[in-house]
Amino acid sequence: MKTGKSLTFRSILISYLVLCLAMLTVTIIGYSSSIFYVQKEIRNSAALRMREVVGKIENNIRLSYQLCDTLAVSGGLDDIALIEGNFSPQQILDSMKLKNTMSELNVQNNLCQNLHIYFLKSDSILSSNSQRREGKEDISFFCRQYGITAQDFYCWMTEENQKSYQVLSDNQIWFFRPVNDTQNNRIAVIFAEYSGSRLIGDPGAENCIYIETPEKENVIYSRKLEENQKNGYIKVEKQMSMFQWNCDMYVPNTLFYGELRRFAMILTAELLMLISVAVIGSWYFSKKTYVPVGNLISDNKKLSKKVKRKEETRECRELEKYLTGAVKNFPYA
């Protein structure tokens, strides 16, 4: 009886499990396509955000050069640039007026963190955020503040490029704009100072932007990621039109993995529910189904016993007839 019940339960359970497997297969295919779609949407969204950020960076650079162009033609710069040696009190006063003009232009445009002008003849620097002029004896101190050598500084100030840049240590960058006299001789260099985060702006609370130069030696960034942290981000790349820079955006894939975890939880819950329903349903229906089936088996056994007894009785009668001579042939072996 137990064997019959076990077979009935097992056959119903297998039927349920096959049905559950079919349902799970459809669910897995559906959720897998959904996850693929979510990842695709994350990349598309990051690409759109990337275009916005790159457009803003390039616009900031253009506006910075426009600011430098405006400062180059403003009154007072040419006069101060022609001064050699030490400044007289009046010339110091004129330089302070130029510094105020630099500060006003920078405040009006709200772009760079600082504006500097290097005057070649007097070998001095005037900065919008400084209350004093950096004389020849202060150049080395000025360079140390930015982690560069005086030799590198003078090399940059004499480069032939009309518009160039230089990435400094500590995530800072300078954009240079030379100023020439009427004979096309260089008399000054205006350079706008940015930090990486100021130039890039806000790419999003969790996103990170990295800008690589063509040489891939100098990098500026909105915030720094360690190499082991980059594994938790989706990388989107875009080539910039200015200076042939390459811009990389790192988008946290927590949204993607969040969807993946949610899918795993739903799949696990669905699997447990289906197995529970299959076991309980199989037990219930096997119990219901086995009652008539069990009766049939029992009746079949009873009939088999009766048939067997009748067969044995007939054999005995035939044997008796054979032994008494009533019949000459015995049909059973």
Results as ranks from 00 to 15, higher is better:
Gly196Cys: 12
Tyr16Thr: 08
Asn60Met: 03
Ser33Ala: 11
Tyr37Met: 03
Phe87His: 04
Asn129Arg: 05
Thr3Trp: 05
Ile173Gln: 02
Val307Pro: 00
Phe191Asp: 00
Val293Pro: 13
Glu318Ser: 07
Lys136Ile: 11
Val73Asn: 05
Glu104Ile: 14
Leu303Trp: 07
Ile28Leu: 14
Glu270Ala: 01
Asn129Ser: 10
Ile211His: 06
Ser15Ala: 13
Phe119Asn: 01
Ser286Asn: 07
Glu320Met: 00
Gln113Asn: 13
Phe191Trp: 01
Trp174Leu: 03
Met96Leu: 15
Tyr257Arg: 10
Ser45Asp: 13
Asp299Asn: 12
Leu77Ile: 14
Asn246Cys: 08
Arg62Val: 02
Glu41Phe: 01
Gly85Asn: 11
Gln172His: 00
Thr254Gly: 05
Val279Phe: 09
Phe256Gly: 01
Ser222Leu: 09
Tyr31Met: 13
Arg314Cys: 02
Pro252Ile: 09
Lys56Glu: 15
Trp174Cys: 01
Ala326Trp: 03
Gln90Val: 06
Tyr65Ile: 07
Ser95Gly: 10
Phe9Ser: 08
Phe285Ser: 04
Gln229His: 03
Glu320Lys: 00
Pro252Asp: 08
Val189Asn: 13
Cys247Gln: 07
Gln166Glu: 02
Thr70Val: 05
Ser32Glu: 02
Tyr154Val: 05
Ile187Leu: 08
Asn329Arg: 03
Ser304Ile: 10
Asn300Asp: 04
Phe153Ala: 02
Ile139Asn: 00
Pro292Ser: 01
Pro292Met: 00
Arg262Thr: 10
Phe153Arg: 08
Gln91Ala: 08
Gln90Ser: 09
Leu13Phe: 14
Met1Asn: 12
Ser169Tyr: 09
Ala192Pro: 01
Val167Tyr: 01
Thr27Met: 15
Ile35Thr: 12
Ser45Ile: 11
Cys155Phe: 11
Ser122Glu: 01
Tyr118Arg: 02
Ala47Lys: 09
Asn114Tyr: 04
Leu21Thr: 09
Arg261Trp: 12
Ser64Cys: 02
Met157Thr: 03
Ile92Asn: 07
Lys238Arg: 07
Ile280Ala: 08
Ile280Ser: 06
Leu199Met: 06
Val26Cys: 12
Asn100Asp: 15
Arg314Pro: 00
Val293Asp: 14
Met157Pro: 04
Asn180Ser: 09
Glu84Tyr: 03
Tyr146Thr: 03
Arg186Cys: 05
Ile35Ser: 11
Lys328Thr: 14
Asn295Asp: 13
Asn329Lys: 10
Trp174Asp: 00
Asn295Cys: 10
Phe243Gly: 09
Ala46Trp: 13
Ala205Cys: 00
Met240Gln: 02
Leu296Ala: 13
Gly147Phe: 11
Arg186Asp: 02
Ile211Ala: 10
Thr289Cys: 04
Tyr290Gly: 04
Pro292Phe: 00
Val26Tyr: 13
Pro214Phe: 12
Gln113Lys: 14
Met102Asp: 07
Met265Tyr: 10
Ser304Gln: 14
Ile220Thr: 12
Phe119Gln: 03
Ser197Met: 06
Thr3Gln: 06
Ala269Ser: 15
Asn86Val: 15
Lys121Ile: 03
Tyr118Gly: 06
Ser130Ala: 13
Ser241Glu: 10
Glu159Leu: 13
Thr27Val: 10
Ser32Asn: 05
Ser286Lys: 05
Glu215Ile: 00
Thr313Lys: 07
Arg309Cys: 05
Asn44Asp: 10
Ser6Lys: 09
Met157Asn: 07
Asn207Tyr: 04
Leu93Pro: 00
Lys216Phe: 02
Glu311Phe: 09
Cys143Met: 13
